[in-house]
Structures are given as structure tokens and as C-alpha cells.
């Protein structure tokens, strides 16, 4: 199972900044291993971030996103203690959700 994300969410002056570090190989499908066989593509395709129950960002990724993807974004509102949850799905159908409280 995929490792947990590291998420930081902090509210300041009415805006919440969210920063996420995912743990994922983000294999492009274009590299070859030492025996010359193509390493199959394996990458996050979609991501959704929610503040409490409201979607505050959705994203689609391709294999050009770096290994262990990073994402930062901001939304208006959000208070200390509110929940921010991030979910990703990859091209093999694996998924992971992690959440933090806004600091």
C-alpha cells in the first residue's frame, strides 16, 4: 500500500495555504530496466482536495509530474482545526486519502 502523504495546511489572513507531498514512483512508461525491458507506466492521474466537505481543488497529472509529487494551492476561508483531505488515484486504480487539521 502506498505511503501516507505529508500535508501542511495553514490559515493566515483569511486564506488557507495547503502543501502536499505525495509518495509515488510516477513511472513514465518510457524508461527501460537493466535487461532492456520497458518499465510499465505507473503514475497518479487524479487528485482532489476537500476543505471539510467542499472540493477546493481537483487536478489531473501526467507522467511528467515528478516522483513523489508536490502540490501547493490556496483557498479563501478555512479556520484553525478545520479538516483538509487530499485523495489521489493512479493509473493502476490504487488510491490513497490523507487528511490534516488546519494549523
Amino acid at each position: 500500500m502506498a505511503s501516507p502523504m505529508r500535508i501542511r495546511a495553514a490559515a493566515k489572513d483569511g486564506v488557507t495555504e495547503v502543501r502536499v507531498l505525495m509518495s509515488h514512483v510516477m513511472e513514465t512508461g518510457q524508461r527501460k530496466d537493466s535487461s532492456g525491458a520497458v518499465i510499465p507506466a505507473h503514475f497518479i492521474t487524479e487528485l482532489t482536495a476537500k476543505h471539510n466537505d467542499k472540493v477546493v481543488l481537483s487536478a489531473e497529472f501526467g507522467p511528467s509530474v515528478s516522483t513523489n509529487p508536490y502540490l501547493a494551492f490556496k483557498f479563501n476561508g478555512g479556520a484553525k482545526g478545520d479538516k483538509v483531505a487530499v485523495t489521489w488515484v493512479d493509473n493502476k486504480g490504487e488510491t490513497r486519502t490523507d487528511e490534516v487539521q488546519i494549523a
Binding site: L57, S58, V65, A72, F73
Partner: peptide
């Protein structure tokens, strides 16, 4: 694959994103 990532920005979200690419 030239498209690296796309983001849908709902009302109330700031039009500002950061990521890292190959």
C-alpha cells in the same frame, strides 16, 4: 508527454498552484 498537469479551480480557490515536473 507535454501536458504535465491540469487544475480545476472552483469558486473560492485562489488561481495559484505550484507543483514539480520532470
Amino acid at each position: 508527454n507535454m501536458l504535465a498537469a491540469s487544475f480545476t479551480i472552483p469558486d473560492g480557490t485562489v488561481a495559484e498552484v505550484q507543483t514539480r515536473v520532470k
